[in-house]
Design a protein around this nucleic acid. Sequence first.
DNA 1: TAAAATTTTTAGACAAGTCTAAAAATATTT
DNA 2: AAATATTTTTAGACTTGTCTAAAAATTTTA
Lengths: 220, 220
Amino acid sequence: MKFNLSQAEENYLKAIYSIGIDTGKSVNTNQIALKMKTKASSVTDMVKKLSDKGLVEHKKYKGALVTSKGESVAVSTLRSHRLWECFLVDTLEFNWDEVHDIAEQLEHIKSDSLVDRLDQFLNFPSYDPHGDPIPDKNGVIKHHKNVMLSSVEVGASCIVIGVKDSSSSFLKFLDNASICLGKKIKVLKVEDFDQSMQLEIESKVITVSHQISKNLYVKK
Amino acid sequence: MKFNLSQAEENYLKAIYSIGIDTGKSVNTNQIALKMKTKASSVTDMVKKLSDKGLVEHKKYKGALVTSKGESVAVSTLRSHRLWECFLVDTLEFNWDEVHDIAEQLEHIKSDSLVDRLDQFLNFPSYDPHGDPIPDKNGVIKHHKNVMLSSVEVGASCIVIGVKDSSSSFLKFLDNASICLGKKIKVLKVEDFDQSMQLEIESKVITVSHQISKNLYVKK
DNA sequence: TAAAATTTTTAGACAAGTCTAAAAATATTT
DNA sequence: AAATATTTTTAGACTTGTCTAAAAATTTTA
Ligand SMILES: [Mn+2]
Ligand SMILES: [Mn+2]
Ligand SMILES: [Mn+2]
Ligand SMILES: [Mn+2]
């Protein structure tokens, strides 16, 4: 498929696709406006345009969903974004909290083979530096199971496999707490009052708020 | 210095800077329009805008020249462009005729440290895949001496160090003729009528037009 | 140096993407 | 079910970068 979309169009499609994945339902104008940090009226304009191009399905006053064409654009933009993040962290040695804004630009570079060559150079990584799965060349994604640290029961251990929020401030907090992907965490206690958790990480004990624990993906 | 320029502004500055370097004189509206593949009226608009921002010096009807501020933008864009071309050829193994259009996009990525990290990863290359010098972090460029193959006398030998035209069609021609950077060429004969040259390259003899020989930089 | 040719600028228009303010539709409360 | 609140769309405006056509300035030619 050969689309020629602007960066704005690609960004909107990514936003609509990812909100749609999260919620399963049709995506509201205001949700898109929130994610895109823009006004509802701008969203309406763009949704109309994407609808004209057959990239989203839109019913007036009822929200939008990406079509399969729109999904393929969104997924390939995500693939590009995540591969560039790998490159920035693994090859150029950026910290994981520094790469999002740069990847946000790099994901829009137009080239038939650039992303595939990058993929090959990086040895076909499955996950980006924040634990998000990287779609393959054909757009196939291995979604992970969405187990949050906050839902792990007292006494159980788990391994960090991703972050839900990848804001710089959250990632820096994790750096400070020496929490990174692959780290083993044991849940010692959950406070009834505010659901803060006492954790054992490498024989050190720390306490984290619910806000923190519900933004960490874990397995096992 | 902290400018926040659009891609269009950066491209115009590169164009005005490089025409200015070639000719030494003030750069005409039509020359810029030709290089930018746009209309003279669009150039006038943009030059006015760049002039308002102190990036070019413009006298009505008399052409434009980059200021030192404008030069520093142009040079840092060139640096970015050429480093990305190195990356594409050396790291991602693109052919030298495939990289210009991609670098034309990559050069505009905004980041404080991206280009410097790329420079380091590539081990501070001095020249891009077409033999063009790469400005250092401080904007210092080692211009090479602009000796064209066409000016080499009969009987003399030289080494290819760059191409003037880096269009895909020229580069593909060179690939076919097994001419690449570093290759040794001996001039066997120059035809009086059309200045075509008979060359010896790795004990093979080929004939090239003046068009070709005046687009190859050589040394020695 | 006056006429002709060329170059450059201005004037006015358009597309993309955004915004504010107001109108219309939908959802929630009473 | 009517009134109220919220969400969404429309209307109109603005910015950036482009274009065509016409006017103005400069350069070349005679
Ligand atoms: Mn990111
Ligand atoms: Mn990521
Ligand atoms: Mn180039
Ligand atoms: Mn080059």
